[in-house]
Amino acid sequence: MTAVEVVTIRPKQGALPRLKELRRTMLAEYHARHPEVTTQWYEQEDGSIVDIWIWPDRASGEAALGDPTTSPTFTNEWQPLVEVISFHWATPVGA
């Protein structure tokens, strides 16, 4: 069953331009191992970002997140530049 990962982050001071650069590399790394995942990124008025990842199932998403080699860019460069405000899993209504 499709699983949606909803993450709200706040970039650290001055980090947004670098995050935008890193995102391309990070997504390429995820897609190399999980081509079925889709993403959406929304910048909110308060400066936080809602990052939505749609996985074929929750197990696939959890496996990717649990393996630091899935995206070395995420593990080594992205994470230190953000504060995670919230992280939730969701399922489509009617699924």
Rank of each mutant, 00 (worst) to 15 (best):
54 I>C: 09
32 A>R: 11
78 W>Q: 01
71 S>N: 06
80 P>E: 03
79 Q>S: 06
68 P>H: 13
56 P>A: 02
55 W>A: 13
42 Y>G: 04
37 V>M: 15
67 D>Q: 10
42 Y>R: 05
25 T>E: 02
21 E>Q: 04
47 G>N: 00
11 P>Y: 10
27 L>D: 09
77 E>K: 08
60 S>D: 10
28 A>L: 05
38 T>Y: 00
53 W>I: 04
72 P>A: 02
32 A>I: 09
17 P>G: 04
10 R>S: 12
69 T>Q: 11
48 S>T: 15
16 L>V: 09
80 P>I: 07
66 G>V: 10
30 Y>Q: 01
76 N>V: 03
58 R>Y: 03
71 S>R: 07
42 Y>W: 12
72 P>V: 03
33 R>S: 15
39 T>S: 13
76 N>K: 14
51 D>A: 03
30 Y>T: 06
73 T>V: 14
36 E>T: 12
70 T>I: 14
72 P>Y: 06
15 A>K: 08
45 E>W: 09
22 L>W: 01
40 Q>C: 00
78 W>G: 01
31 H>N: 07
65 L>H: 11
68 P>N: 08
59 A>D: 08
56 P>F: 00
13 Q>K: 05
54 I>Y: 00
33 R>I: 14
43 E>C: 11
67 D>S: 08
20 K>A: 01
30 Y>N: 01
61 G>C: 13
41 W>H: 04
78 W>L: 07
72 P>S: 03
39 T>V: 11
20 K>C: 04
57 D>E: 12
48 S>F: 05
50 V>E: 13
48 S>L: 02
49 I>T: 05
81 L>M: 13
49 I>R: 06
10 R>Q: 12
70 T>C: 10
82 V>A: 05
14 G>M: 12
57 D>W: 04
28 A>G: 14
15 A>H: 02
23 R>C: 11
30 Y>M: 06
38 T>F: 00
55 W>F: 09
73 T>Y: 02
10 R>L: 13
37 V>T: 08
70 T>V: 15
10 R>Y: 04
32 A>C: 10
38 T>N: 07
73 T>R: 01
37 V>I: 12
61 G>E: 15
20 K>M: 10
65 L>E: 12
15 A>T: 09
22 L>G: 00
33 R>W: 05
13 Q>I: 08
81 L>F: 00
54 I>R: 13
11 P>F: 13
65 L>P: 04
69 T>F: 08
17 P>W: 15
62 E>G: 03
12 K>C: 14
37 V>S: 04
40 Q>R: 01
64 A>M: 11
55 W>M: 12
31 H>A: 12
24 R>Y: 01
42 Y>C: 11
39 T>E: 15
59 A>N: 01
41 W>N: 01
73 T>S: 01
51 D>Y: 07
29 E>F: 05
14 G>N: 13
63 A>M: 04
12 K>W: 09
15 A>M: 14
56 P>K: 03
